[in-house]
Amino acid sequence: MPAPKNPFKARLAAGKPQIGLWMGLANAYTAEICAGAGFDWLVIDGEHAPNDLQRMVGQLQALAGYPVATVIRAPVGETWILKQLLDIGAQSLLVPMVESGAQAAALVEAVRYPPRGKRGVGAALARSSAFNRIGDYLTTADEEICLIVQVESQKALAALPDIAAVEGVDAVFVGPSDLAADMGYLGRPGAPAVKQAVRDAIATLQRLGKPAGLLTADQTFARECLADGARFVAVGTDVTLFSGATSALAQSFRDTAPARSGETGGY
């Protein structure tokens, strides 16, 4: 029996746009809620969310029963953590802060078994092989791994042709927030110059034949990027959706609730 098919990778190869949601609450219960919302893909964020391997396993288990693809963003592009993420069952990995073709090539090696790469062979202990119940896992796993590299600096954008040319890089994700900081627009990913840089990167990647993606909560910009050819776009985060909804609910009652006896306003 071969390794499970990777629907996210298959849809990328078919050129089908995919709409996603970023998950930073680091909780299997909320991940399952997101899984039923109707998105094509979900990100379990290991870089900026308080996720560890145990929390990620729980989220992967919660999502397994839903028709949604899962991407795990690694905290860093180091072989040891990529190996662990693959062994717990991740098939699509997003690796931050990639700035050169050489770095991208090293990541390809990290997620492939020898002789094509350097991934450690320990699948008998791993969830990825159904705990050694997938007999052909070692010989079929490589084809279902999807490696997405994240470019988020001006240096990385300048190296896009080299990065995109690396065999085994399946897609490139443009990170607007860190790119904005690098361009001198800290906290302003919506600055016109940043948006233009993102759109230029999408155009470059489309010309190079490499699927492009991004995260933006700006729905107008998300649609513009999809029209430009972006193939996987996350359109929000669970954290901001939850914080925004709870704040709006509380504020709606602050604005309308009558003052209590002896109070001039508020609660």
Rank of each mutant, 00 (worst) to 15 (best):
E78V: 13
W80G: 12
W80S: 15
I81A: 05
I81H: 03
L82Q: 07
K83H: 14
L85Q: 02
L86M: 14
I88W: 02
Q91K: 11
Q91G: 12
Q91Y: 10
S92V: 09
S92W: 03
L93H: 02
L93R: 00
L93C: 07
L94M: 13
V95C: 05
V95K: 04
V95H: 04
V95Q: 05
V95W: 05
P96C: 05
M97N: 14
S100C: 08
S100F: 07
A102I: 06
Q103W: 01
A105V: 04
A106F: 04
A106Q: 15
E109H: 14
E109I: 05
A110W: 04
V111H: 06
R112Q: 12
R112K: 13
R112M: 07
R112T: 08
Y113V: 12
R116Y: 03
G117W: 03
A123S: 14
A123N: 11
A124D: 05
A124W: 11
L125E: 11
L125P: 05
A126L: 07
R127H: 13
R127E: 08
S128M: 10
S128F: 10
A130M: 12
A130K: 11
F131S: 13
N132L: 08
R133C: 07
R133K: 15
D136R: 12
Y137G: 09
Y137I: 10
T139Q: 13
T139D: 14
T140P: 10
A141L: 09
A141Y: 02
A141C: 15
E143A: 15
E143M: 03
I145E: 01
I145T: 11
L147Y: 02
L147T: 03
L147H: 01
I148S: 03
I148M: 04
I148G: 01
Q150W: 04
V151A: 12
E152M: 04
S153T: 15
S153E: 02
S153F: 01
K155P: 00
A156D: 02
L157S: 01
A158K: 08
A158G: 07
A158P: 02
A159D: 14
L160T: 09
P161A: 00
P161N: 00
D162R: 01
I163P: 00
I163G: 08
A164E: 06
V166E: 00
E167N: 09
G168M: 04
G168I: 07
G168T: 11
V169L: 03
V169H: 04
D170T: 00
D170F: 03
A171G: 13
V172G: 06
V172W: 01
V172I: 15
F173M: 14
P176K: 01
P176Q: 01
P176E: 08
P176H: 06
S177M: 10
D178Q: 06
D178C: 09
D178M: 08
L179K: 08
L179N: 06
L179M: 07
A180T: 05
A180G: 10
M183C: 09
M183Q: 05
G184Q: 05
G184W: 03
G184N: 10
Y185M: 07
